[in-house]
Amino acid sequence: MSDAAANPIVRARDLTKTYGTTRALDHVSFDIEAGRIVGLIGPNGAGKTTALKAILGLVDFDGDLRVLGLDPRTQRAELMEQVCFIADVAVLPRWIKVSEAIEFVAGVHPRFSRKKCEAFLSHTKIAPSMRVRELSKGMIVQLHLALVMAIDAKLLVLDEPTLGLDILYRKSFYESLLSDYFDENKTIIVTTHQVEEVEHILTDLVFIRDGKIALAATMDEVGERYAEVMVNPDKADAARALKPLNERTIFGKSIFLFDGIERTRLAALGELHKPSVADLFVATMKGTYA
């Protein structure tokens, strides 16, 4: 997310999208560089999906957006040779047979490897003669992932890819993605509400709220900037004086979340922790639905 990007995969300047009177994206600017796994996290209706749709050329917008140097509005077909997309489950057409889906993608996609796809499917219970409507939700996602992982694309966009799946499918989804797909030439953008499950794979974090970017940082920067301190009641007032982002109480102790306060000062107050993305998210989004 640094501004020094020479050739970013995604470059957005003043990205704006209005639906009627609501502003889904409000003059948003950001860069996404190659080889990153970016988590786009925000409450419902914050503009995550709109941002992804803009990147994929699925929605019209104002401002300037370049994905792999192309304009998604006018060059969607070329762009999709380099970009893959998995939306939440059940966007695969229900009538199609597994073998037909493979034949179709193989036919239209110049970077698709049928061998890779079939190898991945061989580890599942999915048979070529099955129709999508006969598959469970988890199997549909496996099929979609098999189709996408067999494509040598530069950018993979995941919009709530594991929504409604059980934990076994969710775990294996991200494991396959990391071990069999991701490398330094690929970039992944993922939105999800299940922050805990992706936080260990992310390299970058973007919080989005009310169509604006609330936070954009690498995970390393997040670790440096933010700290959580567990404070005994007697030092709580001293901690509050340092203007914490958030305060919560567990077992009579207060846990404070600080942004950009020196470690030595915080260490004097109590035990230091690295905050989880979920805690950081809750603190950042305080009052969103109020």
């Binding site: 994929l56 999709m80 970009v83 893959c84 939306a87 966007v91 057409p93 229900r94 993608v105 239209v108």
Partner: peptide, 20 residues
Amino acid sequence: DDRRDRSVLFWKSLPVSDTA
């Protein structure tokens, strides 16, 4: 129909132009 069942998102994720 593909817009109603959202499978349009799959078709549009492939390098096929709307004209085609």
